[in-house]
Design a protein around this nucleic acid. Structure first.
Lengths: 111, 111
DNA sequence: TATCCTAGTAACTAATAAGTAACCTAATTA
DNA sequence: TAATTAGGTTACTTATTAGTTACTAGGATA
């Protein structure tokens, strides 16, 4: 959090999980720890550069942990941190809404 | 929804509420209907152009209703549609997380 | 008659986000 | 010896977002 003033609190949420990729990454990490390459395969459209960048930001914001195995070729595992765990409900409910929308289970009648 | 295939369902959610402004707009609309100018005042950083654009997209996605009063100067009110209402839980929980983050009520210990 | 009002739109520019391709490390395998 | 491996970084280009300024309608107010 670089600024400490927000017009409304939800801006703090958006600062952490906003953008094109972070929710996607976190949805993958919420059920298992994953290696860099596994994340890349799971999110086919993302480039290495963006994945690296987004992972770094999530790490800096304290949402994920990065564990480097001291071996060659490298092995790095990413997982939700405890703070990241606190986002689980947010992620779950966003996932659930998407599923309902896709399977047409949302109310669509006029108000 | 222009594409009907997603790698994971949450992409459908991001398609609708992704981007810099939509969650903000919806958080304001979730408790009351609001006029264009009221939204603009509530989100000081947003320009007319972006506000118009985001509102149109939300309307096209069936998330909000737009009601035009037939008078001059114009009066237009925006409100959540029934489909939009189904996002309430998502919005509430995002707002709540932001509040907790700001007031430091999140777990921050190392995993 | 001139100005104000709200909710926009249009044309153009600037800023930011994202993509591409080449490169790096050092142990292991062919 | 040469290639392969995973997880990156760097420099550069392109695409997408967002900002700026000017303009509109048409009734109400000064």
């Amino acid at each position: 959090m670089q600024e400490n003033y927000y017009n409304i609190p939800v801006e703090a949420t958006l600062e952490v999980i906003g953008g094109k990729w972070k929710v996607l990454i976190l949805c993958h990490l919420k059920n298992q720890k994953m290696r860099f390459s596994e994340l890349q395969r799971s999110i086919p459209q993302i480039t290495k550069k963006m994945l690296t960048q987004q992972l770094r930001e999530l790490e800096n914001d304290g949402i994920i942990n990065r564990y480097v195995y001291q071996q060659v070729p490298p092995k790095v595992e990413y997982s939700l941190s405890n703070t990241g765990e606190s986002l689980r409900k947010v992620l779950d409910i966003m996932c659930a809404w998407g599923e309902k929308r896709i399977t047409n289970q949302l109310v669509t009648s006029k108000e």
